[in-house]
Design a protein around this nucleic acid. Structure first.
Lengths: 106, 106
DNA sequence: GGGATATTTTGCCAAATTGCAAAGTGTGTC
DNA sequence: GACACACTTTGCAATTTGGCAAAATATCCC
């Protein structure tokens, strides 16, 4: 469970840019689907391709985006590559977002 | 402080799309700067323009993006418009992101 | 009505993003 | 070495994004 919110240290522009990069990686519904799937455990690319329903090259690109900001890690075993969440605490952001959206009538 | 993480209800594709929209709104460093400024209280467009250092039309566009996903609300008073965070719990997402990034050596 | 101030909207352009198809690469088996 | 399987990278086209400048709009005062 995330720590109580605390006033974060004063942020530099670089902090905002790095944060923006992570949010950008999460700004695509297919990547969110991938993250959600990985929250239950590691998956190989073929698994995720079936789940997402896009071309495997597209899924591979999305995984590269997620890996580049450190959201997921890869583990090659034979011809398959298995992806996992680098830190499951990213799911806390989903909970926060759910809370935020719940507070907003549509 | 956010509730303990709990397995969220199974998400529909529409859920992921809506979540992606909020993340997309947060995927720009200037909009994060604006959100951060608003966490200390309401600001008018001129204030935010000075803070961000971009053209006022650009700031206005960014505010429109934030308003469209429900992150901020506007309040016109005379010729000025004051913006606020609709729900300060969005700052919890910043804390979660800070925790996430802290766990990642760069 | 006009004028001033503050803000929003529109148009344009360059850059970035996202999908697929095709080509390329890595691993394992023979 | 070739071949099969799994995955990654590249090229392309369509779409979106984000900046500024200019125009338009809203409020207030006279």
């Amino acid at each position: 469970m995330p720590a109580a919110p605390r006033p974060p240290a004063r942020k530099s522009p670089a902090d905002f840019r790095q944060s923006a990069e992570v949010f950008k990686a999460l700004s695509n519904a297919n990547r969110l689907l991938i993250i959600d799937a990985l929250s239950t455990g590691e998956h190989c690319v073929a698994d995720l391709t079936e789940l997402v329903g896009l071309d495997m090259s597209t899924v591979s690109n999305h995984l590269a985006v997620l890996r580049n900001v450190g959201l997921v890690t890869d583990d090659r075993r034979g011809t398959q590559v298995f992806y996992s969440l680098r830190d499951p605490c990213v799911m806390n952001m989903f909970c926060c977002l759910d809370d935020f959206r719940a507070g907003r009538p549509r």
